[in-house]
Design a protein around this nucleic acid. Structure first.
Length: 696
DNA sequence: TTAGGGTTAG
């Protein structure tokens, strides 16, 4: 068809014919019609004289680039005898458009070696390639070239340079380029707003948006609003988000797909799930995968996994196929709640949809199986990953950490670094946790100090808290105290909590009181602080102090939350309270608990009543401990679930020290893996041991 | 004939 049309409409002279062919090539490029483009190319080759024209060759390069056939574009360029500046620019831009960023930068260098002076077109395309590669060095070289030839303040060059610097995390440089621009348009503003937002300078992003509005020279377009919404979501600033929403409605962008997706995400990240849900549903074209996934993620981030599961079902009912983002969010939700069955089903769907190679998806699966107690399955899945990324390495190191395999975590860390993957601050949280749980204090300290010295990573509060936890678990309270006194920042709640528990275990009243006071400042409603404090006093027999803590709790209207444990069995959730005999199978459960009690005593179990700050007989305390909700849940699971399945129990409070000891022995005598996810962490009981050691 | 910006994940 294309060939016939060319022949039938051929204009009378050669110049006009060239223009006509160029217009046809342009239309093919715009339409992405490579079949017709190739027919035109064949026609040019046959017509001999025309192919010698650099003008038409340049059009061919553009056409192939727009049709995403960069190889053909390069072949055409290579055949041009004397490529001019447009040929070079077209090639560089075509390579950048087709994500061949290294080739684009190499073409820019080759153009300079060929003594062809760069145009503003070539500079902006090459800067885009440097931005995509996060390569500030070649980017800065491009900036120098721009300054030398006077294009550095050109609207296109400057906005792409500002974008390049901000994508490389160099906000000061980006700002300098931006400020020197004689005029700015919406693209330039978007580069800056987005640059701030993506680099975590969320307030600066919001200020830039306000500045743009105050200047009143440029109207915000869809892209500007998307970047501003992204910053607003990160700030969790509902007021700013709602103001942006009003501006968007006024500007008439509310129903634009990308803007609505950004709106949903903003509301979801701000925790306003009602408005997020409303924004998803106003789509006249039905749901879409991006906004649906943002809503799911919003529910998961606010611990509403049930609603996330419902939204996932609704998304599919609306005919929308979940993508890799949806799966990684959903699997994360299953990991948080230790929902092994739903997580395994999602794994099957991931395989069916060929998304198992996606780094985020595989990492969340590794994490999910780890949190559901299936460490070997998790590690096998990681080992099958051909090119594990930093995220996947972090996931597997964390699995080792959570399962108490400190040496294996260290080995994984060494393999990660020797394979050329750079660790980040998350890697070190997992690695230090692994050292802490396994009692590897010297190794943990070495890694902690190597963070800054060897890897250039400034330790944050979570890393400092890992070291406090490490000393606390090892019973080295003096060193923990010394470490805290030398810290450049205050410990966070996790750090004080670790210290408080260790003080309870060792009966260290003075340090325990310091930890409790600091923890109360950070978490005034944490009832666990009072429980721990009274535990310390009770362990020392100081019953008057126990009474004083109870009075303080009464006066402050702090009530200890009743403990509940629940277990999923045969697609049904069974909930148990302490001394709760309301379950239909109560007789069998009671019988099993009595049997377990005898068997673990034979294994050396001695009740630890220190967690009960009550001045009552030990035999009465023993009875209370025996019927704690987690033990009832485990007994129920043992008589109800197939022996091949791990037992996963969830508890709303922290597991007590006695249940911790008892469950270690129950898992041993029953040869069953037991996982207890309490309100603080996962405890994996395997072969008579717990992943967190003796420190519950 | 050739150019720059945007929305979902650990």
């Amino acid at each position: 068809m294309g060939k016939l049309r060319v022949q039938s409409t051929r204009p009378p002279d050669a110049a006009a014919a060239s223009l006509h062919l160029a217009a046809l090539l342009q239309s093919c490029g715009r339409a992405g019609d490579i079949r017709r483009g190739r027919a035109l190319h064949a026609h040019l080759l046959l017509s001999g004289a025309a192919i010698a024209s650099t003008f038409l060759a340049n059009h061919l390069i553009t056409m192939y680039s727009h049709c995403t056939d960069a190889d053909s574009a390069v072949r055409v360029f290579s055949a041009v005898p004397r490529p001019n500046h447009v040929s070079w620019t077209t090639l560089i831009s075509g390579l950048a458009q087709n994500s061949m960023h290294r080739d684009a930068l190499a073409a820019f260098a080759a153009m300079r070696r060929a003594d062809v002076s760069p145009t503003q077109f070539a500079l902006s395309s090459a800067a885009r390639a440097a931005a995509a590669l996060s390569a500030p060095r070649p980017g800065a070289q491009l900036h120098c070239v721009g300054v030398r030839i006077g294009f550095d303040t050109d609207l296109f060059v400057a906005s792409s340079l500002a974008g390049m610097y901000s994508k490389c995390g160099l906000l000061d440089e980006a700002c300098r380029v931006f400020d020197q621009m004689p005029q700015k348009d919406a693209v330039a503003w978007t580069s800056m707003i987005d640059g701030y937002a993506k680099n975590g300078s969320l307030k600066a992003a919001a200020v830039a948006f306000r500045d743009m509005k105050c200047e009143g020279l440029v109207a915000a377009d869809q892209h500007v609003f998307c970047s501003a919404l992204s910053a607003s979501g990160g700030l969790k600033d509902g007021w700013l988000g709602r103001s942006l929403h009003c501006c968007i409605i006024k500007a008439g962008f509310e129903l634009e797909s990308v803007v609505r997706n950004a709106l949903v995400d903003m509301y979801a990240k701000s925790g306003d799930l009602e408005n997020a849900s409303r924004a998803v549903k106003i789509d006249p074209g039905g749901w879409n995968v991006v906004s649906g996934t943002s809503l799911i993620d919003g529910y998961i981030e606010t611990d509403c996994v049930e609603e996330a599961l419902e939204t996932y079902t609704e998304l599919q009912r609306q005919g929308v196929e979940p993508n890799e983002f949806t799966f990684s969010s959903m699997i994360k939700g299953c990991a948080m709640q230790a929902l092994l069955e739903q997580g395994s089903q999602l794994h099957t769907h991931v395989i069916k949809k060929s998304l198992i190679r996606d780094s985020f998806v595989v990492s969340t699966l590794v994490d999910m199986y780890g949190k559901c107690g299936l460490a070997s399955l998790s590690i096998n899945l990681f080992n099958e990953t051909e090119y594990p990324t930093e995220i996947a390495w972090n996931a597997v190191i964390n699995v080792y950490a959570q399962h108490g395999h400190g040496r294996e975590a260290i080995q994984a860390f060494d393999s990660m670094t020797s394979s050329g993957i750079r660790p980040n601050h998350i890697t070190f949280v997992s690695l230090l946790t692994a050292c802490s749980h396994a009692g590897l204090v010297d190794e943990g300290l070495n890694y902690f100090y190597s963070m800054k010295d060897k890897h250039g990573i400034e330790p944050k509060e979570e890393h400092y808290s890992c070291i406090i936890d490490m000393y606390a678990r090892a019973g080295r309270l003096d060193e923990a105290e010394q470490f805290i006194s030398e810290m450049p920042i205050e410990p966070n709640a996790y750090g004080w909590c670790s210290l408080l528990r260790a003080c309870w275990m060792q009966g260290n009243k003075e340090l325990g009181q310091v930890a409790a006071q600091n923890l109360m400042k950070l978490e005034p409603h944490n009832t666990g602080i009072h429980v721990s404090l009274s535990g310390i006093y009770a362990s020392l027999g100081q019953w008057e102090d126990v009474k004083a803590v109870r009075k303080l709790m009464r006066d402050s209207r702090i009530k200890k939350m009743p403990g509940f444990s629940w277990v999923d069995c045969n697609k049904k959730t069974h909930v148990f309270g302490s001394e709760d005999w309301s379950h239909p199978q109560q007789e069998q459960i009671y019988k099993k608990l009595e049997e377990l009690s005898e068997r673990i005593k034979e294994e050396g179990y001695v009740p630890d009543t220190s967690s009960l700050p009550l001045n009552i007989e030990d035999s009465a305390k023993e009875r209370l401990l025996r019927y704690h909700s987690e033990r009832i849940a485990v007994a129920f699971a043992l008589i109800s679930m197939p022996a091949t399945k791990p037992i996963i129990v969830k508890k709303n409070l922290r597991i007590c020290v006695d249940c911790h000891s008892a469950l270690k022995l129950i898992c041993k005598v029953e040869s069953r893996d037991i996982i207890v996810r309490d309100n603080s962490r996962f405890h994996h009981f395997v072969k008579g041991r717990c992943s967190c050691g003796d420190y519950w």
